[in-house]
Amino acid sequence: MDCYLGFDVGSVSTNLVVITEDGQVVERLYIRTKGQPIKTIKSGLEYMRENLDNSIDIKAAGTTGSARNLTGVIVGANVIKNEITAHAVAVSREIPNAQTILEIGGQDSKIIVLRSGIVTDFAMNTVCAAGTGSFLDQQASRLGIPIEEFGNLALQSENPVRIAGRCSVFAESDMIHKQQLGHNLEDIVAGLCEALVRNYLNNVGKGKDILEPIVFQGGVAANKGIHAAFEKALAKEVMIPTEFSVMGAIGAAYLAKNNYLQTGVSKFKGWDMADQNFAARSFECKGCPNLCEVINIFQDDNLIARWGGRCGKWEHAC
């Protein structure tokens, strides 16, 4: 059976999906990146090699996420695409009439506005990471609650506490003050969800027409507290796609499929890349005071890619 591989390697999670010709997800994997993308990519490949049926023939791979270039080099990608386009592509296939996508990942949050299946506007948090998955993760561990239970706890709250959501550092100190006053844990957790949503809508959502159907995805969509806070703040129904946590990877797989069908060329290097030795070694270029950290990617001793310089002289020499 002809299938396509999608890879979304982000700051917090690495997601892989294998989809069929007609878009059915045959296998999915959601693992933590833990700051070691190369190792994670390899274990993802290994998982697929062990678990996929032998009849599945990967025709092409697509990558997205902040480590999309690195992943693309390692697995051999037909398409390397930014997260915004990848997410939009996945949604336009799964929920064709969607008009708004709310996406919250580990380090960034974005809003994508679609009209008739085409992206007409988007925004992504720029300078501030308040209101992203990492922040929730940190606060959950500070409160001693597993992140998986965070959302359920928030739903039990009857009187959410107001927490300043403008900046995650201030949010944290505000939250501590409220704790010291003796507020319930569930009220604080619910307050945190509302603060995060408020910050999201005021920051990335500012000035955007949030029309229904609204789709909420990304790792944070697993959090029922945030979902409820969105529906409360927008006073609209917010739907969560079944594959909410791997939508970026699905989009990348679709893009790989389109590219393969157009070009007939596959660049996929195969599952056995899981056994190869990849290493990233960097050096500081002393050509100017920028002192760029140039990164070399090696497969065994062969240089296969290079990036990180500002002026492009290293990239062009590779």
Partner: peptide
């Protein structure tokens, strides 16, 4: 990332 998405 943003520039690529904008160009798309």
């Amino acid at each position: 990332t943003r520039v690529e998405a904008f160009v798309d």
